[in-house]
Each structure stands twice: as C-alpha cells, then as structure tokens.
C-alpha cells in the first residue's frame, strides 16, 4: 500500500514536471519550428539558481524559486531575440546555437559550483498520514505547484489573447502576421514563459531528486519524447504523453532493476513511434 501510494505520487510528480518542461519546448517548436536544444540547460540552470539563492544567499525558498523563474524567463527573451530570431528558418544554425548555449551554461555551472550533485532543501517537513499510508508534504507541495501551473498555462494558451495568438502562429504563421499579430513579440513571450516554466521545474526537481550540471540533457530528451509522441502541433496531447512517460519512468524501477528500468521507456517510445508515425494527436496531414 505504502509502495503504491508512493509510486502514484512519483508518477504525478514526474509527469507534471515533464509536461512543464515539454510545453515550453513545444511553444517554440510548434510556432516557429525551432528545435531549442538549450531548453534542457535552461531547466538545469533554473534549478541551480534556486539552489544558489537558498544555500549561499539564504533567500527564502519560495522567493528563490520565483527569482530563478523570472531570471530564466528574462533569459528566454534574450535567447529568442539574439539566438533564434536572426536564424528563423535556418535549421542548422539554430541547432548550432542551441548546442553552443547548452555548452556555455553547463560549463558555467560546472566551473562555478562543481560537478558534485546538490539538492535544494525541502520546503516542508513532515508527513501527511492516512492510516498506514504517509506522504511527505514536500511531495504533495511539488505536485500541487506543478498541477496548478499546468492549469494556469492551459488557461493562458486557450483563453487569453496572447495565448490564442500563440495558437494562431502555430497554425498559420503568415495568416497570423496578416491579422496584425506581432509574431516576434509573441514568440519572445512564448520563449519567456517556456523558459520560466522550465526553470521552475528545475527548482522543483532539484528538491525532489538531485541537481547535476548535465540533468538538462536527459530532460531535453524527455521533452522531445513528449512533443513527438503527442504529435507535432498538439498541446493537449503533451498532457497525455506526459502521463504515459511519467508513468513508465515511475513504475519501471518498481518492477525492474535500475538500468533495465531506464531502458524500457525508450524502447516503448520507439515502438509507439513505429506504430503511430505521426504521434497520437498529430495534426500534420
């Protein structure tokens, strides 16, 4: 029982974190076809900024997370403006820039803080108990924040003017420009929101698991899995694929030995892609 509840929480937490990061990636990918290979590094740096603020500057954890999110959102604007916008449509150069930024961020964190694994302190002590079952408040909080943010983001994308403009750009970029939408500004906004969400996920994951300068590489791949399996253009599908991948990642270690458990999700992903060559909810004809 204890194990079951713990696993359910692992599924929920991993899924919501994967979805947070993947959504940010999907925004730029769907709107402008940009493969942002720096997205994983943004997630990682977000976690480290939170860590540094709490551990070295003694900032309140909540404030630290907020600051980390805002800083990386700002970084997202810079990224869009100077690294992606000049090369719109030039796939090769966008990939090169992404790798470059990735290397710079990883190296910077490495040089400043070392490769030692670190963890953000937990924000809440104690356990919530239901009879024999207990769950740490920390985990509950992480999940609640993640879930709340996902609700907020879906509301933003579906209901607000800027969110609808983002959708318009991904459905027909020229039609969007002709409607008077400032494609560059909305892209910058999307990149800011996406980077902020990634940074926040980095902080939350940093307190749930561990921080490492290379944790972004793996997260980037997971984001890609979510986006591709959902099908290009589908935002809602990412929630489904996020739950699937989070489920695989959380359940596999319960059944299989460590390294085998790591392999299983990717084997499943490859098989799914072969069966559904356009993902689950792909819009592309």
């Amino acid at each position: 029982m204890e194990q079951v509840v713990a696993t359910i929480f692992n599924v929920l937490i991993l899924s919501s974190m994967y979805i947070l990061v993947a959504l940010g990636f999907a925004f730029l990918f769907n709107m402008l076809g940009i493969l942002n290979l720096a997205h994983g590094a943004v997630y990682m740096v977000g976690g480290y900024i939170g860590f540094a603020l709490i551990n070295s500057a003694g900032v309140n954890p909540w404030v630290a997370i907020l600051i980390a999110t805002l800083i990386m959102a700002g970084f997202g604007v810079v990224l869009e403006r100077f690294c992606f916008r000049p090369f719109t449509g030039d796939f090769n150069r966008i990939v090169m820039v992404g790798v470059g930024i990735n290397v710079v961020l990883q190296t910077a964190v490495n040089a400043l803080l070392g490769t030692r694994m670190q963890a953000l302190p937990s924000f809440f002590d104690g356990y919530l108990r239901f009879g024999v079952v207990s769950v740490s408040y920390q985990r509950i909080t992480i999940f609640l924040i993640g879930a709340a943010l996902l609700v907020l983001v879906s509301w933003f994308v579906r209901r607000t003017k800027h969110g609808q403009q983002m959708q318009a750009i991904s459905q027909d970029i020229e039609g969007a420009a002709l409607s008077g939408i400032n494609v560059h500004r909305v892209s910058a906004l999307a990149c800011a929101i996406g980077s902020g969400m990634a940074a926040l996920a980095g902080c939350l994951m940093g307190s749930y698991l561990m921080l490492s300068p290379y944790m972004g590489d793996l997260m980037l791949i997971k984001a890609l899995v979510l986006v591709i399996l959902a099908g290009i253009g589908s935002i809602g599908g990412i929630f489904v694929t996020g739950l699937i991948l989070g489920g695989l990642d959380a359940v596999a270690p319960v059944i299989f030995d460590g390294a085998v458990a790591d392999a299983i999700p990717y084997i499943v992903v490859v098989v799914v892609l072969l069966l559904r060559p356009r993902g689950f909810f792909g819009r592309e004809a």
Binding site: I221, L224, V225, I228, D257, A259, V260, D262, A263, Y266, I267, V269, V270, L273, L274
Partner: peptide, 18 residues
C-alpha cells in the same frame, strides 16, 4: 530524426543494462 534519437537513447540504455 526523432525516432533515431530515441532509438539511440534506447541502445545506450540497453548497453547500460548489459
């Protein structure tokens, strides 16, 4: 491209599990 990427990760993980 993506299939190749995921397969690459799967191969690495299978080798890790060897």
């Amino acid at each position: 491209a993506m299939g190749s990427l995921f397969l690459g990760v799967a191969i690495i993980q299978i080798l890790n599990a060897g």
